[in-house]
Measured scan of single mutants.
Amino acid sequence: NKASVVANQLIPINTALTLIMMKAEVVTPMGIPAEEIPKLVGMQVNRAVPLGTTLMPDMVKNYE
């Protein structure tokens, strides 16, 4: 099973992601793959992301 990106803390709306906000975890359903973490740094979330939430592509602005 591949790990996904999971919020390590509450991430407020429009916050630019940093490494300490994210962790890799095997979850179902899968979200953004953990190997994308370096690419996510500096990208903004378009909603508040609660602690423990799996990051999905539609939660990150301009994620492709």
Rank of each mutant, 00 (worst) to 15 (best):
T54N: 02
K39A: 05
L51A: 08
L10Y: 11
S4A: 10
A24G: 14
E36C: 15
V6T: 10
Y63W: 13
L51M: 12
M59S: 11
A7E: 01
P50T: 12
Y63R: 03
E64Y: 02
E35I: 04
K23V: 10
M59E: 14
Y63E: 03
P29N: 14
A48G: 07
I32S: 01
K39G: 06
M22P: 00
V26C: 15
M22W: 01
V26K: 02
I20D: 09
P50C: 14
V27S: 10
G31L: 01
K2H: 15
P12L: 12
V45T: 13
A7C: 05
E36L: 07
D58A: 11
L17Q: 00
Q9I: 12
A34N: 05
A34D: 13
V5N: 01
M43E: 03
T18H: 11
A16H: 06
N8T: 15
Y63L: 04
N8I: 10
I13A: 13
I13T: 08
T15W: 08
A16V: 09
E35Y: 04
P29E: 13
V27E: 03
L19R: 05
V26R: 02
A34G: 15
Q44P: 15
I32V: 15
N1V: 15
I37Q: 13
R47E: 13
V60N: 00
A24R: 03
V5M: 02
V27W: 03
V60W: 03
M59P: 00
K23S: 11
V60C: 06
K2N: 15
V27M: 07
T18G: 04
I32L: 06
Q44W: 05
L19D: 13
K39R: 11
T18Q: 07
V6A: 03
G31A: 05
N8Y: 13
V45G: 01
E64K: 15
L40Y: 02
V49T: 10
I32Q: 01
T54D: 00
N14H: 09
L55F: 14
V41T: 08
P12V: 10
V60H: 00
M59R: 02
A16N: 07
L10F: 10
S4V: 03
V60D: 01
V27A: 14
A16Y: 07
Q9H: 12
A24L: 04
V45Q: 01
V26W: 05
N62P: 03
T18V: 07
S4P: 00
A7S: 05
G52I: 01
G31Q: 02
A34W: 13
Y63C: 14
Q9V: 08
G52F: 05
I11M: 04
E36T: 08
T54C: 13
E25Q: 07
M30C: 15
I13L: 12
P33G: 14
V5Q: 01
I32A: 02
Q44I: 05
L10W: 11
V60Q: 00
M59G: 09
L17Y: 00
P38C: 13
P33E: 13
V26M: 15
P33F: 10
T15C: 09
K23F: 07
V49I: 13
V49H: 02
I37T: 04
V45I: 03
P57L: 04
Q44M: 06
V6C: 09
V49C: 06
R47I: 11
M43F: 14
G31I: 02
A48M: 14
G42S: 14
A48Y: 06
L10R: 10
K61R: 07
V6I: 14
P57C: 15
K61Q: 11
I20G: 06
G31M: 04
L51T: 14
L17A: 01
E36G: 12
E36Y: 07
L51V: 14
T28H: 08
P38L: 04
V27T: 07
K39Q: 08
L55K: 01
P12C: 15
P29H: 14
N14K: 05
M56Y: 06
L55S: 00
P33Y: 06
M59D: 07
R47D: 13
V60T: 02
P38T: 12
V5D: 00
M21S: 09
I13V: 09
I11Y: 01
P29R: 02
I13P: 09
M30L: 11
I32W: 02
I32F: 02
T54Q: 04
I11F: 01
L10P: 15
L40V: 06
A48Q: 04
G31E: 02
I20E: 14
N1W: 05
D58Y: 09
E36N: 12
I32T: 02
I32H: 01
M21P: 01
V6W: 03
A48H: 09
T15L: 04
M59H: 09
